[in-house]
Amino acid sequence: MSTKVGIFGGTFDPIHNGHLYIAYEALNQLKLDKIIFIPGGNPPHKSFSSVSDANQRYKMVELAIKSYENFEISDYELKKTTKSYSFETLEYYKSLNIGELYFILGADSLITIDSWKNVDRIMEAATLVVFNRPGFTKEQLVEKKAEVEHKYNKKIIYLDLLNLEISSSGVREEISTGKRVDFFIPDSVKRYIEENNIYR
């Protein structure tokens, strides 16, 4: 039986409990062997100057996933000096022959996927796994899923998850105004943010 590997990329600025919940559900619902968290290096769709230090984001993910035996972290995108495109990351992991790849992404990414680079190569390298996010209806997602499946002749898996309304930008905002964020992020990440005075 082939190994099934989830690829979960993101800026993770910071990683929060919503990310952990999504990864945990994907692992269990899809019977994956492991999930690799890949903090984004230089994401093409974000203003890089507004993203926190790469080493700090890596460390926060590392701390957050420490107690999950099937979760791993990769610095593949962080080591790149050029922009990080999903198709390149997925093709790199496919070339390692580590198993069948499942690319986990949110509703917002599926809705805007037509603007991504080399979508056909993304679809070729991995099975897309889409989870719902606040701001999108299930109907919208199902419709877009069908449209993308038809266009690329590939199946997309829809993960119906609880809508945890936690966002990294929201967590940063709470921290900057001195509010408590214990319920949004793991304790280890909270301590690291405080010790290193991030988002103040």
Rank of each mutant, 00 (worst) to 15 (best):
F131P: 03
K34F: 03
G10T: 11
N17C: 06
I185D: 13
G18H: 09
P39S: 10
Q56E: 11
K83P: 12
S2I: 13
F103V: 08
R121E: 15
I22R: 07
E147S: 08
A26D: 10
A26P: 10
S52H: 07
Y24L: 14
D187T: 05
E139S: 13
F184E: 02
I22P: 06
D108M: 09
F183D: 11
S86K: 01
I15E: 06
G41P: 02
S2R: 14
I111E: 13
I35F: 04
N17E: 03
I166A: 08
G135Q: 11
I157D: 01
S168Y: 03
E72F: 15
S67W: 00
G9E: 04
Y24V: 00
V181S: 10
F131H: 14
S52D: 14
F87V: 05
K145W: 00
K155M: 00
I7G: 01
S86N: 03
E165H: 09
I36S: 04
E165R: 08
K59E: 15
F87D: 00
K34V: 02
D33Y: 05
Y24K: 15
M1T: 12
E147Q: 14
T81M: 06
N132M: 13
L63K: 14
H19Y: 12
E174H: 11
I65W: 06
L101Y: 03
I193C: 13
S2A: 10
N70P: 00
F183S: 13
L27K: 13
G106F: 02
L90A: 07
Y85Q: 04
L159H: 08
I193P: 09
I198R: 08
Y199R: 05
R57N: 13
D182A: 11
Y192E: 04
Y93S: 01
A146S: 14
L161H: 09
M1W: 05
N197G: 09
L63N: 09
L161F: 08
E77D: 15
A107V: 06
L101N: 04
I175L: 12
K117D: 05
K179H: 14
F12C: 00
D53P: 05
